[in-house]
Computed example of a mutant assay.
Amino acid sequence: MKATLDDLDARILNLLQEDSRRAYGDIGRQVGLSTTAVKDRIDKLRDRGVLENFSVSVSVGKAGFDVVAFILVGIDRPADCALFEKQVLAVPEIQECHHVAGAFNYLLKVVTRNLSSLEHLLSTRIKMPDVVSRTETTIVFSSVKSRGMLDCTLALE
């Protein structure tokens, strides 16, 4: 279901993505609404599922994690996908899991302390015998952009 945003909703979402701790009054001043009106709009965006959560962005390297990797995962039998997805949900090092088109079924983003922990994760938690038929791992050297803001005004065009 496509969410319908108006200009004020889009601008409020953009401001919250910049700083989710921003006060309603500050948002109201920037978009021309009262504090109460901003709170009501944010509540409605949350109720409609447009605004999923408020979160904190942690610096991977400064928190002690030296390896970010993307892993493509191939599964030959479609019936095994549900088992793999269940496993993914139980592994905290897997930050993202996307079901994708192409030669592989899934694209994972993983964060680990070091290469040894990445190797252990791959061999014990991702390469599930009799489920995963192949993997391909790409290790990130550095990131130019790792967390993009969704410009909600683009949905208005």
Rank of each mutant, 00 (worst) to 15 (best):
M1H: 07
A3P: 13
L5D: 06
L5H: 04
D7F: 06
L8C: 07
L8K: 05
D9Q: 04
A10M: 10
R11H: 10
I12M: 05
N14A: 06
L15T: 04
Q17P: 09
E18P: 03
E18T: 04
D19M: 07
D19P: 03
S20V: 10
S20E: 12
R21L: 03
A23V: 15
Y24E: 00
G25T: 13
D26K: 00
G28T: 04
R29E: 14
Q30D: 15
Q30H: 06
V31S: 01
G32F: 13
S34V: 11
T36N: 10
V38M: 12
V38H: 00
K39L: 15
K39A: 11
K39G: 08
D40G: 03
R41A: 05
R41M: 10
I42S: 01
I42F: 03
D43T: 05
K44W: 03
K44R: 14
L45Q: 05
R46C: 01
D47Q: 12
D47P: 01
D47G: 07
D47M: 09
V50Y: 00
V50M: 00
L51P: 00
V56L: 11
S57L: 13
S59D: 13
S59W: 02
G64W: 07
G64D: 12
F65W: 09
D66M: 07
V67S: 00
V67E: 02
V67N: 02
A69Y: 14
A69G: 11
F70M: 10
F70D: 11
I71T: 10
I71W: 04
V73K: 01
G74C: 09
I75E: 04
P78T: 09
A79K: 09
A79Q: 14
A79R: 15
C81W: 11
C81D: 14
C81S: 09
C81F: 14
C81G: 03
L83P: 01
F84M: 11
E85M: 07
Q87E: 15
Q87T: 12
V91Y: 06
V91E: 02
V91A: 06
P92K: 08
Q95Y: 01
Q95A: 03
Q95W: 01
E96R: 02
H98C: 07
H99K: 10
A101M: 12
G102C: 13
G102S: 08
G102N: 12
Y106F: 15
Y106K: 02
L107C: 08
V111Y: 03
T112N: 07
R113D: 10
R113M: 12
N114P: 05
N114R: 03
S116E: 15
S117M: 04
L118E: 03
L118N: 04
H120E: 13
H120D: 11
L121S: 01
L122C: 11
L122W: 02
L122A: 03
K127R: 13
D130C: 09
S133E: 12
S133V: 14
S133W: 00
T137I: 10
I139H: 09
I139W: 08
V140N: 11
V140P: 02
F141L: 15
S142V: 13
K145N: 14
S146E: 14
R147H: 15
M149R: 03
C152F: 11
T153C: 07
T153A: 06
T153Q: 01
A155L: 15
E157Q: 12
E157F: 07
